[in-house]
Design a protein around this nucleic acid. Structure first.
Lengths: 230, 230
DNA sequence: CGAACAATTGATCCTCATCAAACCTTGTGG
DNA sequence: CCACAAGGTTTGATGAGGATCAATTGTTCG
């Protein structure tokens, strides 16, 4: 059950591609489905493929020598990942990609993308635009981690996730993450996340549950993220 | 006193440029000299120019709403900066560039680079390669800040600086930075940097002075950076 | 129902940031 | 050439913010 090549236009880097190009790319791709907790690739593997997630959810993370992890970002449907390796011929993945739920992705040989970019300037340009947003986001998160305290960082993570993948329900915006996930995304521990969320629940800002946070009062969370209140 | 266009080939993004292209770029550039402590541009300014530093030293930094700063990187001669803005038409600089000493840079209109990239695939490719190194470095530094403790981070900063701009002298590798600089680069305070350096001096790893650190025993510093010792 | 996993909460400890004061180094002007 | 100012550095004292550990309590699912 191959996907419709035209659906690839949802991928930001392919938004300006011709129909023929999309077909070409689709015909050079293979589908890969993996279960929750399994890996698309590991940090350090040779970057032979880049991926486009077409179903499910995954996370990109880095591990230090002692095994501690940080989340770099979460990957949603129609987002590209593992594309850094497509730029250099000899590259290895700088991060590990793990499925957060049963997921399937389209894998395309990095070589092939490089080849296409030689003759399709729009591809390079759009990929560069994507890369600039990554750089800016990482710079911002770095500054946050260096200068802001946990409560604010957690609030920001919640807001970013709400924008990216929040589901509107009647009591607010629902997010599906474990405390551990949130901790890795905000550079803290699951204990601290738990404490902060409990406190916020007491204040009526959020509603929590197993692998679940509902933002009841987005404005209140924003005011913590922006430090509008003492 | 315009510079020799051919010297631009030292800029990583221009390494594959033709002689004619270098001349073109040089002819579209203007020189800007500023004093220590002054600014090439501020975070949030419209990114009209990108720069190539041709003399001196500068730093790229971000500021949060309350004025705290973090150093993103130090810029040496023949490095490009402010280039992220060259990719998007509407972009603003995501960081502030400040001279660490009397410095001069070549300023080229971002528009012009964009125009060139339309017809010079090598330019896009080389700029992308540069951007991937930024992304990877930021990701690594983010992970460090989230998971490593200060001593290690300071050791890493020292090693990175030694590689980038260390001067070999008979007693070791000399670096010229204030404690404040090192603190901003490792995400800590000048007090902590001072304490750590004093301790290392006691152990014979380094030799310190005003605006000066000499790495006497690089291997020892590496072993701290890599946590090879308890 | 029980096993596995997620979350909570209290107690404790440790790393660093912060503040304050003194000390050095370098350059300047009388 | 000395004195002084300005900026950089050191060091001690203190405290806060979180990390860590341990124990318990949900929650989900086979």
């Amino acid at each position: 059950m191959p996907i419709d090549p035209m659906s690839l236009r949802q991928v930001s880097v392919f938004q300006n591609a011709s129909d023929d190009d999309l077909k070409l790319i689709a015909s050079h791709s293979i589908e890969r489905s993996i279960e929750e907790g399994e890996f698309f690739f590991f940090q350090g593997d040779p970057a032979v493929y880049f991926y486009v997630l077409i179903a499910g959810r995954a996370k990109l993370m880095q591990t230090n020598p002692t095994g501690q992890q940080v989340n770099l970002r979460t990957i949603n449907e129609w987002q590209m990942f593992g594309a850094l390796g497509a730029v250099r011929e000899d590259a290895t993945y700088p991060a590990t990609a793990q499925a957060l739920e049963h997921s399937t992705a389209l894998a395309v040989k990095s070589d092939y993308l490089r080849e296409l970019m030689q003759t399709r300037p729009y591809l390079s340009v759009d990929l560069m635009k994507l890369m600039t947003t990554y750089i800016q986001e990482m710079q911002e998160r770095y500054r946050e981690l260096a200068t802001e305290k946990v409560e604010r960082r957690i609030a920001r993570v919640l807001l970013r996730l709400a924008a990216q993948m929040g589901v509107k329900i009647d009591s607010g915006i629902e997010l599906t993450f474990t405390r551990q996930d949130l901790a890795e995304m905000s550079g803290t521990t699951l204990y601290t996340v738990s404490r902060v969320l409990s406190e916020w629940e007491r204040q009526g800002l959020v509603e929590t549950g197993r692998e679940r946070v509902v933002i009841r009062n987005p404005h209140g969370v924003v005011s913590i993220a922006e430090e509008l209140n003492p």
